[in-house]
Design a protein around this nucleic acid. Sequence first.
DNA 1: AAAAAATAATTAAACGCTTGTTTAATATTA
DNA 2: TAATATTAAACAAGCGTTTAATTATTTTTT
Lengths: 206, 206
Amino acid sequence: MEPKDKIIQCAIELFSRKGFEATSVREIAGAAEVNVAMINYYFGSKEHLLEKAIDDKLSYLRNIFSELVKNTELTAIEKIDKIIELVIERKFSNRKFNHLLHRELSLANRPQLKTTITELLMLNITPIKQIIKDGVRTGEFKEGVDIEMTVATVAGTIHYLLISEEMSRKILGKPATFSPYNNSQLKKRIGNHTKNLIRAHLLKKQ
Amino acid sequence: MEPKDKIIQCAIELFSRKGFEATSVREIAGAAEVNVAMINYYFGSKEHLLEKAIDDKLSYLRNIFSELVKNTELTAIEKIDKIIELVIERKFSNRKFNHLLHRELSLANRPQLKTTITELLMLNITPIKQIIKDGVRTGEFKEGVDIEMTVATVAGTIHYLLISEEMSRKILGKPATFSPYNNSQLKKRIGNHTKNLIRAHLLKKQ
DNA sequence: AAAAAATAATTAAACGCTTGTTTAATATTA
DNA sequence: TAATATTAAACAAGCGTTTAATTATTTTTT
């Protein structure tokens, strides 16, 4: 792997685990096995490195959901099911990176970066909103539901259970030996719950 | 106000807005109008100051929900409504402090602190769980619902809409001029949605 | 109640260390 | 031969913390 990419990769890993400010450029250089000066040579500054890394992720993830929304062979509720699974899968496998994004979003330090991150997070949100809208329009879903809030519920439920191992354990009432993120059990459970919830909330009573 | 308390107050404000690592002790001292050495004199270190501040908040908030859970004059769904309103109120007025807690929780830097924070956040969670449990036991709520996940949904929905102004605007589809946290409109909207959602999910069909 | 002693609070200055960044020289590749 | 990549070393600035001296307050003794 080229040194430039290796720097990005190591930086993301360290920023995600320790936070941006708590990670030194020497640490990153050490992990990437390059000279410290290479970081400024390639990226100009530590801050630009962060921006570049997040920007890369954004352009990589763009338009990955679009096919699902367009697919007309599935009903709205089937699409919702699929997208719930996709979001869970993605959030689980990018858990710490997501924490990095949310940390930056909660700070007033780098305003320009916040816009990029918002766009990145909205990649998960927008398609859910669109599918629910379509479902209401075609009559498959109830009228009068608060679509925007429902979207927040789906994203929020998944997000909340990925905050930390200890929080998840406490919420689930599990002992300290339980590793919520190391088995696929929790993924399924979140998926089932969210789907049931959305059904009770959106589907017309039959 | 005593210098010790003023330091805590200013520290919380700065840590919340800028993050722990990005805030210098000289900044805190400047804001609190005391000499830098006072911080170490009173708290030993910058890190202990953070711990003390969070610890204070924890002991202040303990047992504040207990009366609501014990109140037997309300039905389970009425209790849920009340607690949703309480949690929304609290999260809205402590928005940035909550961000600080969640940032610390997402980092591996200060493990001991994470336990305190988890306990603090669980003060919102535990009563909701208890009320739903009771409601299921008395037959007011459906059986077979995933109680722990439902709790995560309530907390997650509220939490997600408080991530950032820009995120909220984007989720709600509002223009850049809209200030989601400056009016009480959003509070009510989240409250109504969450209550409706929980009703559809928990109440038996009549 | 006044004086003396002891404790606590506050200050300016310095400490040693780490930070992100730059420089200028060298090695590598085109 | 020219452009690019890589290096070790140095830079100035900021960091959290400590020191030692001074002022303020409280406690004890007369």
